[in-house]
């Protein structure tokens, strides 16, 4: 399972970077989204995969069986929320760029260089 996820993460990073290197604004943003997914999955995988272990303690505080670490999931949740906000902003920015410049070719956005 770890190996499979490692491959998935690698493909996501590679795909994300490839899309960011394209000239279109749309693929740039898809690339950014893929990068953040890859980072989230990376946190999930490196902190140890556990099957059937709840991250919860009963009321008495004594675990019934093996428990898993809830912290990585909390980190990922935070990162997903932040990533969502950022993605929404970049989509708006892309739309605005297209409205103003009339182009979605990144190579043509050179007026500030």
């Amino acid at each position: 399972m770890t190996l499979l996820l490692a491959v998935v993460i690698g493909v996501l990073y590679a795909g994300g970077l490839y899309m960011m290197l394209r000239r279109s604004l749309g693929t740039l943003i898809i690339g950014l989204a893929l990068l953040s997914h890859a980072a989230n999955l990376l946190i999930f995988t490196v902190s140890g995969l556990a099957r059937g272990r709840p991250p919860l303690l009963p009321d008495n505080g004594v675990p019934a069986g093996p428990v898993s670490d809830p912290l990585p999931q909390a980190l990922i949740l935070t990162a997903i929320v932040i990533g969502f906000g950022v993605l929404a902003f970049t989509l708006t920015l892309m739309h605005r760029t297209y409205q103003i410049t009339g182009s979605e070719d990144i190579d043509e956005l050179r007026s500030t260089e």
Binding site: L32, L35, S36, A39, N40, L109
Partner: peptide, 19 residues
């Protein structure tokens, strides 16, 4: 807008490396 696009993209990449 063009400045913001460059700033946003490169800073987001750095953020994902940081994360």
């Amino acid at each position: 807008i063009e400045g913001a696009l460059k700033y946003v993209t490169l800073n987001l990449m750095a953020s994902s490396v940081f994360l």
